[in-house]
Every structure is written in structure tokens, then in C-alpha cells.
């Protein structure tokens, strides 16, 4: 890259880098390190952090409660991501192929829920799924749910609302990738004898590979850390890791325990992130799709 003289020369680099760099080191890196450190601290009875070091907190993660919660967190997040991708990919495909004049309107239609208050979107589902709400009445009338059954407060409701809150985040990167895709490649595939489904699968999907990786990350990671959705539409049988962290922090005031759970969540998030980085690296090798 050519170096411009006068404006932003090499010697200016520290001055323009340090403000954000130091801010993030102090308020992001150090707090993250503290989470891991406090996991090795005992709690004190007043809701603070005790003196000395202990492995007690980590050992308590072996409590039979936790594997169940961890497992539920993982399967709900994976299911959310899978459903989001299944819905978002055809939508992104359609948005990228639709006539140019419709595109801004469609993008706007996706962005509005994306920008709408997170709590409001969850609350809207609480209204729809409410025992006295319209959906329940309709389904009960059709005898699809028992009259006294509930649409709320179980894992199904959590999954539905997680998909609802994450779906716009999955569509946007996929649309960005699909918009750059050269659709003549699909025509070429058809010309060479591939059916519509096969050409979608072997040409389009590899073509938007980066978009798929991004979409997976931006849905999976927040889903793994979700707290508000299971808190508002889930019940005691659909608690996730996030709920436990909040519970240990606010109700039990056991900060070391909350730290240990957070460290566990951080590791759970790290795995897909590292995988994604490795996959996109491999993609840069320029290898084409296998037929």
C-alpha cells in the first residue's frame, strides 16, 4: 500500500491507534481476564469476592444440573442457527434475484425488525402466544392444542422466539453475499445438465460460502449467550446458560460461580469461532466446489 505523505504518515500510527486500543484493553481485555481469574476465587457471604484461591467453584460445575443446562443451551442454539439458515438462504437468494426496483424495499422490510427494540420484539411474541391471545384461541378452536395447554414457558417457545430475533441477522450477511454472486454460474450449471436443486446446492451455496459462515456465527454466538428470551418466554424447564449466569449474579450474588459459568460459555463460543476462522481460511485457498 502506498504511504501518503503528510496525512497519516507512519509516525502518526501510535497517536491514532492508542485511544481505541487502550480503551478496549482496559474495558474489554482486562475484564475478560478478570472473569477467568474470579472463577478461581471463593465467594464471600456478603456477595463479594473472597480472598485466596480455590478450585471449589470449578468443581461445583460438575453438579448434575449443569450438563443438562449446557446440553439444552447447545441444542437450542444449534437448532436456532439451522432454522435461521434454512429460512434465510432462500430469502437472500430471492432478494438478490428480484428486480432492482424491489430490492431496496425488501432490504428495508428486513432491516426494520432488525432495528426494532429487542425487548419489544420478544414482548410481541408474548402477546401472540399469550394464553388469552389470538393464536392460542385459533389453535384451540382447531383442537391443535388442548384448551388448558400453554404456548409459552417451554423450550418450543424459546426456540421460536430465538429464531425470530436472530433471523434478520442471518439474512443480511447472506443477502450481501448473494448480491455479489454471479448468477450466470447457475445458468451455466443448468446448461451443463444440473437440475435446479442440484445447481443451487453445488454452485450457489459454495458461492456464498463466506456469507453462510458469517450468518452461522452471528446467529449461533448470540443464541449460545441468550438470556432475555428464555427468561421471558421460557420456563424452569427451558433455562439456558445465560439464565444461570444472571441468577448467580443477581439472585444468589455468587460472583465466582457466575464467573465460572461465564468462562464455560466463553469456551462454548470459542469453538465455533475458531472453526469458522479455519473454514474461511481454507476457502481462501481458491479451491472450487466439488461436483
Amino acid at each position: 500500500m502506498a504511504e501518503t505523505r503528510g496525512l497519516l504518515e507512519r509516525r502518526h500510527e501510535p497517536w491514532i491507534t492508542l485511544p481505541s486500543f487502550l480503551w478496549l484493553v482496559v474495558l474489554f481485555t482486562i475484564p475478560a481476564a478478570i472473569v477467568f481469574a474470579i472463577a478461581f476465587k471463593p465467594s464471600d457471604p456478603f456477595g463479594g469476592i473472597g480472598a485466596g484461591w480455590t478450585l471449589h467453584t470449578l468443581r461445583s460445575l460438575g453438579d448434575p444440573n449443569y450438563p443438562a443446562i449446557l446440553w439444552r443451551t447447545v441444542w437450542l442454539s444449534v437448532a436456532t442457527t439451522a432454522l435461521c439458515l434454512v429460512l434465510a438462504t432462500p430469502t437472500a437468494y430471492f432478494m438478490a434475484r428480484v428486480a432492482q426496483r424491489w430490492r431496496p424495499l425488501l432490504v428495508l422490510a428486513i432491516i426494520v425488525p432488525f432495528w426494532t427494540s429487542f425487548l419489544v420484539r420478544i414482548f410481541a411474541w408474548k402477546v401472540v402466544l399469550h394464553p388469552e391471545g389470538p393464536l392460542k384461541h385459533a389453535l384451540a378452536a382447531l383442537h391443535l392444542v388442548p384448551q388448558d395447554g400453554s404456548l409459552l414457558y417451554h423450550s418450543g417457545a424459546v426456540l421460536l422466539v430465538l429464531v425470530y430475533t436472530e433471523l434478520p441477522f442471518a439474512i443480511l450477511p447472506l443477502f450481501a453475499a448473494a448480491e455479489k454472486f454471479d448468477f450466470r454460474l447457475l445458468e451455466a450449471a443448468r446448461d451443463l445438465g444440473a437440475g435446479p436443486f442440484r445447481s443451487f446446492w453445488t454452485v450457489f451455496l459454495p458461492g456464498i460460502r463466506r456469507g453462510l459462515i458469517t450468518a452461522t456465527l452471528v446467529t449461533l454466538i448470540p443464541a449460545l449467550g441468550s438470556y432475555v428470551v428464555p427468561d421471558l418466554v421460557g420456563g424452569p424447564t427451558s433455562e439456558m446458560l445465560g439464565n444461570k449466569i444472571a441468577q448467580r449474579t443477581f439472585s444468589d450474588r455468587n460472583l465466582p460461580h457466575a464467573s465460572a459459568l461465564s468462562a464455560l460459555l466463553a469456551l462454548a463460543v470459542l469453538v465455533p469461532s475458531v472453526l469458522a476462522i479455519a473454514m474461511s481460511r481454507r476457502g481462501e485457498g481458491g479451491r472450487g466446489a466439488k461436483p
Partner: peptide, 17 residues
Amino acid sequence: VIPEILLGISLLLFFVA
């Protein structure tokens, strides 16, 4: 790429510490 709840708890612990 980090869940909000981790940012939240880490800052809380930082301020507490």
C-alpha cells in the same frame, strides 16, 4: 462476536474488583 451477557458480566466483575 462475543455474547452480550459475557460483556455485561465481565464489566460488572471489573467494576466490582
